[in-house]
Design a protein around this nucleic acid. Structure first.
Lengths: 346, 346
DNA sequence: CGCCGCGATGTTATCGCTAACACTTGGCCC
DNA sequence: GGGCCAAGTGTTAGCGATAACATCGCGGCG
């Protein structure tokens, strides 16, 4: 038996003050602190009996490794950072949830840094903020042009991936294929026999809004349908409502593709107030498939994005980046069209 | 001029490999590492000219303090943990946002640990998970009985506050006054002349559901109104829809208080399908005031909870706890009734 | 029979920072 | 003019972990 401490008379850590350290555990188990470290990390080889003694000591002292000390010596913090632009929205919140779950399973912690306004400076600030936390990698959830610009100047020395944004070549991007989703929705509406499809777009400085609009426009062009004027909202139900009011007046309007479900809700409301019945007078499709979409009046045809899956894949992409691999720039997740009554029989 | 390095010939950190350290900055500025530390932390006194030189060196090397080293020596990680039960819902997500904002302003980082299912063990796991990250304090957002039970066994050595949950005496709780909100909604409906008010409740193991139900029940009793049978949902629109279908059949049903807005949406849908018109045939009120509630068909009367404010106050409460003060157990935030068409004139 | 290698363990250096204390200089007071 | 104080700076000692190397038996093999 090695060491100076006698197992029969363990040196207990003072019950007061500070947390027990490796040395305290070692004292109690009658081994060196290095042996305890080996037991904890499963490295090296330790006799079964010794391991049992150490484990018991850890248990008794309720020992927990000091993550700061470990991070200092290993140079790895075990933490990833996520920048989210308005994490109260369903999409970002779900993506974050997916990322966090995958990260936790892999033993990483997640630190968040929200950004309320989509400005290049605030996004850069958030990234900088995370770097100060010594995160090992960063995810930016900000499908916004400002984010794209911010990422061009992103630090090179910390692995970074973007969700849903940026044509930047310098940062790998993962996203749901907005263009394809918009195409599906638009083609679905055209297939119902409409001469053309109107569009309520999202804010012009959001990449998702641009891609959806482009998907809609090019689908119309490909089918030789007239490209109507675009009404623009800001993602909110309120703006959808206003868009709806402006469309009610429009003659020869029989189908609308709205860039997200919340605006679609407002639009439905405006149509109802304006005396238009959906789907009898007008067909409406949305985007996102928020959990409530199936219970709108009428239930909304929409494009489903699997945010949880998106989050998981984002985490995988970041890990691959951190390991130095994975230089492919753009990863797309395919969305799915969910048909409901808002584009149903008249 | 002190030190051995000549300012004219700065010792640059190797461009390769590791991040610059205090010593690298010190070398470049021609001072000791301790002076650099003083400049960074604003402690002690440093001559203006020296400070300028150090600042320039920091800038040039793009130096960033190593948070692990700092945490190791100070014993403070500068990180707070948040446990959230389903952070994709509007309420928890907004509360988290409020907490994170307040924390960031105060220089703290936020680490999250989501819990998908409201079990005592998983909540304890999440807390344990955060402790391993050496957080200085923990917020548990989980207005659920399981959370309450988990908190009774919560570690004593890390400051912890709960949002919206638990009658536990051991942990300070901050919450929106659910009882009062339910009272307001119910009294509003009674004041419209209804003989009684029906209730679609949330899941029985959620404290918010219980408080809202109790607020409704006792208000009816206080006004001598009949207490009807309770229909129970699970917060989802789908369950609200089913509750609505079951209520459509009910004769003599003219007012419903639904425990949250999402269920209210489903209920409205079921009523529409069932041939009941709101507000003509039935009055409906919800709870939460999600951003979409104003655009339901019809716009929903509901009880607004200020989640952002709740988050800010939660952070304040946690900080107070961490400073050792603030032993008051229960803090309540008063909600507000927002009246819209769903309880409007017939 | 001595040496090599390996399993099991201990010793020492080190990560980057702050706390605590030591030291120098110059001005001011008596 | 000697001593004291404060400003400004440096030196040293850890914080609690892991990495790297050292040590010690012991069994097998040439």
């Amino acid at each position: 038996m090695a060491g100076t401490a006698r197992p029969g008379e363990p040196e207990r850590a003072a019950t007061s003050g500070r947390q027990p350290s490796l040395t305290d555990v070692a004292g109690l188990a009658g081994v060196s602190h290095m042996t305890v470290s080996r037991v904890i990390n499963g490295t090296g080889s330790v006799k079964a009996e010794t391991r049992a003694r150490v484990t018991a000591a850890i248990e008794e002292l309720d020992y927990r490794p000091n993550s700061a000390a470990r991070a200092l010596v290993t140079g790895r913090s075990g933490t990833l950072g996520v920048v989210a632009l308005d994490s109260t929205l369903y999409g970002p919140a779900s993506t974050l949830y997916g990322i966090e779950n995958a990260a936790r399973e892999a033993g990483y912690a997640i630190t968040i840094s929200s950004v309320s306004r989509p400005q290049r400076s605030s996004i850069s600030d958030a990234v900088e903020n995370l770097r100060r936390q010594a995160v090992e990698g960063i995810v930016v959830i900000a499908p916004h042009v400002a984010a794209g610009r911010a990422l061009e100047y992103a630090p090179r020395d910390v692995p970074l991936v973007a969700v849903g944004g940026g044509e930047t070549a310098s940062v790998p991007v993962i996203a749901v294929d907005q263009y394809d989703g918009a195409r599906r929705a638009t083609e679905h509406l055209l297939a119902l026999g409409h001469r053309t499809v109107w569009h309520v777009a999202g804010p012009g400085d959001w990449l998702e809004a641009r891609d959806r609009e482009r998907g809609w426009r090019e689908t119309l062009e490909r089918h030789g349908a007239e490209v109507t004027r675009v009404v623009r909202g800001d993602w909110s139900s309120r703006s959808g409502y206003e868009a709806g009011r402006s469309l009610v007046a429009e003659r020869d309007m029989s189908a609308v593709f709205v860039a997200n479900d919340q605006m679609a809700l407002g639009l439905l409301r405006a149509f109802t107030e304006g005396g238009l019945t959906v789907p009898k007078d007008v067909h409406v499709a949305g985007f996102d498939d928020v959990p409530e979409a199936a219970y709108f009046s009428p239930p909304l045809t929409t494009v489903r994005q699997d945010f949880i899956e998106l989050g998981r894949r984002t985490f995988g992409l970041l890990i691959a980046r951190m390991d130095g691999g994975e230089h492919q720039v753009r990863h797309l997740v395919t969305p799915e069209l969910i048909v409901r009554e808002s584009t149903g029989p008249r």
